[in-house]
Design a protein around this nucleic acid. Structure first.
Length: 271
DNA sequence: AAGGGCCTCAACCGCTATAGA
DNA sequence: CTCTATAGCGGTTGAGGCCCT
């Protein structure tokens, strides 16, 4: 399709916008509203292409744009949504009021990506770097699998060596409690078709089974782990999907990483 | 003080999607 | 259905500021 170039005409200014240009654009848009970007520059007295005007407005001048530092809550949201969406900046921006996709993209590339790397996580997959266990570290599936169960698989196979069994037990059970509570939240799951007590019992049972039966943890967790399988007996696909969206895997991961002997996995059993 | 390297982020580029004539 | 204008998206660039030597 042949398109008329929007920014290649003679006399079109490029580069940083001056305060005068901003004022002209704001004044015009306040008077006439958004739209008609192609003819806007001429009408507003700007030597810019329409696209440049639109971007300047939508990324910088719009009154509802939030500027300044990102809060820790926003950081968390971006990281979590990046796990789900990847580099879909517009989708991520939709969940952060006042932030533009450009802002988030820049912030990700300059801050969050580095932060994940420093924590030993691959910023693309969000999985621990240098993992060789592809079974346990497969990319997340958006539907039909439980984030928490999968996470436990990963954590267990990677970090269980030289870990403190009691702490691991406590954390996983707490995480299971969270899931059970979440299932009772009418905003998340349509109806409590499965008894949440049974769910917790199933999870605890699966967990106990894993912990008791695992004597060579690095392979046993991923190869023999029945945790995910047990989950599927008690949760519908929709519930699994909802759980995946809502379980706070990153907090969970961070907590585990702080406690387990991360990066120091030598030979040994869970003790 | 100078200058070189690094970092940040606004802006641009190229492309696709969508609406409407 | 085709074509054009516009909107939107994600990747990339480069100016300017900061920091370190």
């Amino acid at each position: 399709m042949v398109r008329t170039p929007c920014c290649k005409e003679e006399g079109i200014k490029k580069g940083a916008w001056t305060p005068e240009e901003d004022q002209k654009l704001i004044a015009y848009l306040q008077l006439h509203g958004e739209g008609g970007w192609r003819t806007l520059p001429q009408k507003a007295g700007l030597k810019r292409c329409g696209k440049s005007c639109r971007l300047r407005w939508s990324n910088y001048l719009r009154p509802d744009i939030k500027r300044g530092e990102f809060s820790p809550e926003e950081d968390d949201t971006i990281i979590k949504l990046h796990t789900l969406y990847g580099n879909k900046w517009a989708a991520i921006a939709a969940s952060l009021e006042g932030r533009t996709d450009n802002d988030i993209k820049n912030y990700w590339n300059t801050n969050l990506k580095k932060r994940l790397k420093q924590k030993g996580l691959n910023p693309i997959t969000h999985h621990p770097i240098n993992s060789t266990d592809q079974t346990a570290f497969e990319p997340p599936k958006p539907v039909g699998s439980s984030g928490s169960a999968r996470l436990i698989n990963r954590v267990a196979s990677k970090y269980a060596v030289a870990s403190n069994r009691d702490l691991l037990t406590e954390i996983i059970i707490r995480n299971s409690t969270f899931i059970a509570n979440d299932s009772q939240n009418p905003g998340h799951i349509d109806s409590p078709t499965a008894n949440s007590t049974n769910k917790m019992a199933a999870e605890s049972s699966a967990l106990t089974s894993i912990l008791i039966n695992t004597t060579s943890p690095s392979s046993a967790f991923s190869e023999n782990c029945s945790f995910y399988d047990d989950f599927t007996d008690f949760f519908s696909n929709q519930e699994m999907s909802d759980m995946y969206k809502n379980v706070d895997s990153f907090e969970f991961m961070e907590e585990l990483k702080g406690i387990l002997s991360y990066g120091n996995a030598g030979a040994g059993d869970i003790y």
